[in-house]
Nucleic acid binder design. Structure first.
Lengths: 342, 342
DNA sequence: TGCTGTCAGCGAAGCGTTTCGACGTTGGCA
DNA sequence: TGCCAACGTCGAAACGCTTCGCTGACAGCA
């Protein structure tokens, strides 16, 4: 194992000088710097992470807490996780993966052991029990998702209300009057997942503003469940011509079911999906969809943590901020003018 | 911050005694043990990770290197990642997430800095350039996937050859004579991804044994690409009645296309998917599918690393092992007896 | 009674960094 | 020419833990 002392000896300087060359925290003559740097390269020196963390009281690790749940679209989670990792590396940080099932104790463990300098929390509930722990430990954290009380924290999320509103507007613009919103399973709403509630709220208020009549139906994302939801919609409002789906698992079934029931998309029924573009492109017809960038979510969360860390290090109190990413509606082949109904 | 010295003072013992209570590496009287343990609880002590790593020369972290690529089914990657994390926690380990784009340098960095005690590599290519680095650094590692030369490493993977064979057998049993294999995009085969090659190989040899005539077509997983692949199959072998799909993105399109072309599944055409059960259940009709457990993959990899770590710690040379998980074929509604063709 | 062995616990020496204060050396300025 | 500040470098003290060797105390045995 190559240590800083080996590098120092090789370069003919003291180990503190090597440390300063590497950290850039003090002025070093150009000549010494380059000599040290070539010794580092030549010996293949990598600072010992444990020793560094101990001495500097910074682990250069941020923890990412991911849900075990699979009722949300998994590729999005993965995309966020990878974006967090990539962004963190750009700041010289590594990412520790923690699962949600460790709960508040997990947060305590990570914070108290100094394993991580900061925490990114995914799948945050409106009233999340990890948040008080975070505050108590004084850990720097960024939430992906919005919490009721985010004092002392940073948040970033898609603007789901705007996304819902975009859907309502688009269908209204096309002349639809009766529309249905096929959402997540009831469990998602019961645990007050912010993204689900905010989407519906945004959709609802815009729908009302535009004079749309609408139904909201929960759906577990299976074929049967989708069939049930659709059947209830058509039973209650046979004249429904516009559909908004916020449940990746329900998209395929919904398209099949509409076809089976003799409705052609987009001539007889329009479908707007709230999902990633990549997924929207996979269906036939391609889906008009509302999306936000999952990567941006991860990237922004990391930047928020880095800002907080820097502020805390300068003795300041990190400013709380709250970023909402604007969603985009991409018109494809699954939406069209409302049909004339008999 | 609570240190081991605080706990020692609180319990009226020396800090080495606290350490021994926590690690169990020396005999401690029952009375002392319980006194220390309650001090630990009362003070909320968590050992400082950096100090522990420095002194014990063990970080209690394993690194997981995940692909950035998205041409493999992402939920499977996530499932593996979560299984690795969960399994590692059961052994008192945490998981560091590294992305593939760091390549061999990433491996070097992690190993040389002592950040992780072991490494789990996903998406291993047959001739992977990270492997020599692993060997050179003497890092304990487990590969998910099979490499050409795995000396000094442990491997675990699905038995893809057996999976391919299962598909061929199933279709042959049902009386199909002309079958098609819709695979991944050509890039996957060009980089010699083991899972893709081994599936085809297993399928091919069993198909030959059973006297099946078959075609292999690559497919990018989009609607167009699937349409192209299917069109070529039907042009070359119009009597094809059996389909094997190993490409999650192609499943939905394939089913739609078969329907559009006037073929009912399973009466006119049978479809076997190589995909997770969860996905297979989402389609209509539900798909007969061949699967292995992604969770087991992660769990086994962690156990392999733990074994290697334990062996290395006892001064021994860790035994290389290579585990192949047996896949399972679940018959659902997408396969049936071959139709009588005119 | 003295010797040996076991058991519990203690003290101190690291582990490899970072960082603070100190110390020559220069150069600029009066 | 003398003084001071800035610069570049060094030495040493942490950082909080693990672990090795040692020491009493006590029991068993001859």
């Amino acid at each position: 194992m190559v240590t800083i002392a080996d590098v120092a000896r090789h370069a003919g300087v003291s180990s503190s000088t090597v440390s300063y060359v590497l950290s850039g925290k003090r002025a070093i003559s150009e000549e010494t710097r380059s000599r040290v740097q070539s010794s580092v390269r030549e010996l293949g020196y990598h600072p010992n992470a444990g020793a560094r963390a101990l001495a500097a009281r910074r682990s250069h690790i941020i923890a990412l807490m991911v849900p075990l749940r699979t009722d949300v679209y998994v590729p999005v989670m993965m995309e966020i996780a990878i974006a967090v990792t990539t962004a963190a590396r750009r700041h010289g940080y590594d990412v520790l993966l923690i699962t949600n099932d460790e709960g508040p104790d997990g947060v305590r463990r990570i914070a108290a052991s100094g394993l991580a300098d900061g925490l990114v929390l995914m799948d945050v509930e409106l009233d999340d029990e990890r948040i008080p722990v975070l505050r108590a430990q004084g850990t720097q954290a960024a939430l992906i998702g919005l919490a009721d009380d985010a004092r002392g924290l940073s948040c970033v999320d898609h603007d789901f209300a705007a996304a819902g509103a975009l859907c309502a507007n688009h269908l209204a613009d096309l002349g639809h009057r009766d529309v249905a919103f096929i959402g997540y399973g009831s469990g998602v709403y019961h645990r007050h997942a912010g993204y689900a509630e905010r989407t519906i709220a945004g959709f609802r208020s815009q729908a009302e503003e535009r004079g749309l009549r609408f139904l909201h139906r929960t759906c577990e994302g299976t074929y049967e469940s989708t069939a049930g939801a659709l059947a209830r919609v058509l039973a209650d409002r046979p004249r429904t011509t516009g559909f908004v789906v916020q449940n990746e698992g329900a998209i395929g079934p919904l398209l099949s079911l509409l076809r089976t029931s003799g409705r052609t998309v987009p001539e007889d029924a329009s479908v707007v999906a709230l999902c990633q573009d990549q997924l929207a492109e996979q269906f036939a017809p391609r889906l008009t969809a509302v999306t936000g960038s999952a990567q941006d979510l991860g990237r922004v969360a990391v930047e928020q943590i880095m800002r907080r860390l820097a502020a805390a290090n300068d003795g300041g109190r990190p400013a709380d901020d709250r970023v909402l990413l604007t969603p985009v509606l991409t018109v494809r082949d699954s939406t069209g003018p409302a049909p004339r109904l008999p």
